[in-house]
Structures are given as structure tokens and as C-alpha cells.
Amino acid sequence: MRSLVVTGPGTVEVQNVPRPSVGDDDILVRIRACGLCGSDGFYIARGGIPPREGATPLGHEAAGEVVEVGTRVTGIAVGAHVVVNPMAAPSGIIGNGGATGALSDYLLIEQAELGVSVALVPEHVPFAVAALNEPMAVARHAVNRVDPRPGDRVVIFGAGPIGLGAAISFRLRGAESVVVVDLIPERLETALQVGADAVIDSRTEDIVARLAELHGNAARRPGEVRPGTDIYLDAAGAPVVIQTILSAVKRGAKVGIVAVHKKPVEVDFGAILNNEVSIITASGYPTEIFEVTDDIAENWERYALLVSDEIPFDEIDRAIELATTPGAADKVVVTFD
């Protein structure tokens, strides 16, 4: 079978490797779609992941069809459509330094267990949409961490897949208002389509003033502007986002950070002390990997708006270039015939 492997800094190769053998406790999934993540570009640039530098299989946002089932596996049948929990693989995280990657024709799921390593997906859900399950779990964990209450007013910085997934989750949790901030008009349009109440173009609008218009002014001193926003979520990863949030946040607000910041960000804690701001970080999906699956199945047409490009595995080089070029695409999903 074919499998995409990092072979050195900045280089990948489609290798011919043996099709996995299925043990009694395993299943074999024919991959039908696999999303490209920002981390994939990072692994390619650095030449792999310890301890597999120079030989790292890629791909962890997988959806596919079960083609073989071990004799001791229950609840999973040949032909079932499934999404995969890459964290559950005994041989290491799939596509993240483990022995296997989902950018392959087939993926062995060792010690397969329904609800732990895989979840079933209805056949009406396109594989490219089902492949959003893993990044949407990241978004859902971020929302769970800030714990929105019905009636909360929310703003999300960054209208990439995680930010848009969070917007959908905030709506499902009963947020009164969801506002999305970005600087790419096409992304802002998608944000409105998936359920945001309003968007702010950070290139042309005063973010703080606009939020005060949308969420009211909760300032405690005359002449001050502090939007009545209850929850801020950073899904952008730019230092200016943190600076903007902390300069405007109202007393008692929550600031969630799910974006990966590649450089240190200076924070003046003295300036925010009196506002009793809660800064909450979110990483991965400790329990959420299959919490989002039913939502995707029920609302798949809304989630489909997040997929900007579907590119066949035969054109994997083009897919990687598109996914790793800033602003060139929103969500690239690699498809398999």
C-alpha cells in the first residue's frame, strides 16, 4: 500500500509498504479521507517527530471504511464507516510520532474498541466531512474548558477550522451571541454561514469598539470602553490577539487559548489583576474525540462549509503546498479512491 512518510527536513515521500496484517483484536480501515493539520506542516519542516526523525508516517484526521475485522472484535462490522481516535493507538499516536499514519491507503487499528479507538459514522455523511472529527474535538475541548452558560456573549479570534468549529459548539451550548474576528473576508463569510451572529474584519474595524456595540459596554470607569463580552477565545495564535483581549476584557470574563503560540507573549498581570480575568488553556481532546461525532452526523452540511479543498492522494504534494501556505486554503482534506 501507499503511505506518506517524512524522510527529512522539508521532504516527504510516498512509500510502498506492506499492507498491515489484522490480529484477532484489530480492524483494518481503508482510508477514504484524511485532513491536513498545521502540525503536519510543522513535522515536515523539522524532519519528523522524536524518536522518528526522518521516518515519520503522517496523517491523523482520518475517516474510512472497515475492510477487515479481527475475530475478537465486537460491535464493528466490515463495511462500517468510522472515524479514528489517533490518541488511542498502542503503538503511538497515529500520525504524530507513532508507528502508523492515516495518510495511507489502509490503517491498522490495534486493539479496536468501539467508542475508544473508533466511532461509527452514518453512511450519509461524506468522508471528507467525517474527517473533521479530530479537529472538531479540539474545538469542542476548548469550548468545554471555558464552560459557556446559556446567554453568554462570546468572541472568537481566528476563523480557521478550530475557530469555526468552536463557533458551532458555542451555538450548540446556548451562547446568546457569537462573534468571529478575522482578516480574511472569505473566512468571515463562512463564519456567518456556520452560525456566527456577527463578524469583525480586523483589517478595517476597531475590534473593541465594535464588540462594545454588539455586547454592550461594561466599563467600570467613565470614558472607558470594556465590551460586555463574557468569553474570549484565541484560535489565531498572534500576540496582538492576546494584547487586544487583555486591554479590553471586562471584570470576571474568561479568556480561552486554544491556538498554538510559536513565540512568547508578554502579559502585564498587574494591569489585569483588578479585573479578575480567568485565563484558560485548552490542548487536545481528553474526552471529546467522539463527543462531536453525533453533532457532525446531524449537522454535516454546516460542518461541510469548513472544508475548502478536497484533493486526491495522487496529488499529495499539491495538497501539502496548499495547506502550508498561509491564507491559501482553510481546510484541505486528502481523499482516496
Rank of each mutant, 00 (worst) to 15 (best):
V6D: 08
T11L: 09
P20D: 03
S21E: 12
G23P: 09
D24W: 01
D25F: 09
D26N: 09
V29N: 11
C34M: 04
D40H: 04
G47N: 08
A55E: 13
G59Q: 03
V66Q: 14
E68D: 14
T71D: 13
I76H: 10
G92R: 12
I94G: 08
S104V: 01
D105S: 14
D105C: 12
L107F: 15
Q111W: 02
A112K: 10
G115M: 11
S117P: 07
V121R: 08
V121M: 09
V121L: 02
V125S: 07
A131P: 07
A131M: 08
A131W: 05
A137N: 04
A137F: 02
R140G: 01
H141V: 06
R145N: 01
V155C: 08
I156G: 15
G158V: 09
G160K: 05
G160I: 02
R173P: 04
G174Y: 10
E176A: 15
S177H: 02
P185A: 02
P185F: 00
E186W: 00
A191P: 14
L192H: 00
L192K: 11
V194Q: 14
G195E: 09
D197N: 15
A198F: 10
D201G: 05
L211Q: 05
H215M: 08
R226A: 13
I231M: 06
L233P: 12
A235M: 10
V240Y: 01
Q243N: 09
I245K: 12
L246Y: 04
S247C: 03
A248Q: 03
V249K: 06
R251W: 14
G252R: 04
A259N: 05
P264L: 10
N275Y: 15
S278D: 15
E288W: 00
D295F: 03
A297F: 03
A297K: 04
N299T: 13
N299Y: 15
A304N: 14
L305R: 15
L306Q: 02
S308K: 11
D309N: 13
D317Y: 11
D317P: 12
A319G: 08
T324Y: 09
P326S: 08
D330Y: 08
V332Q: 05
V334R: 13
T335C: 06
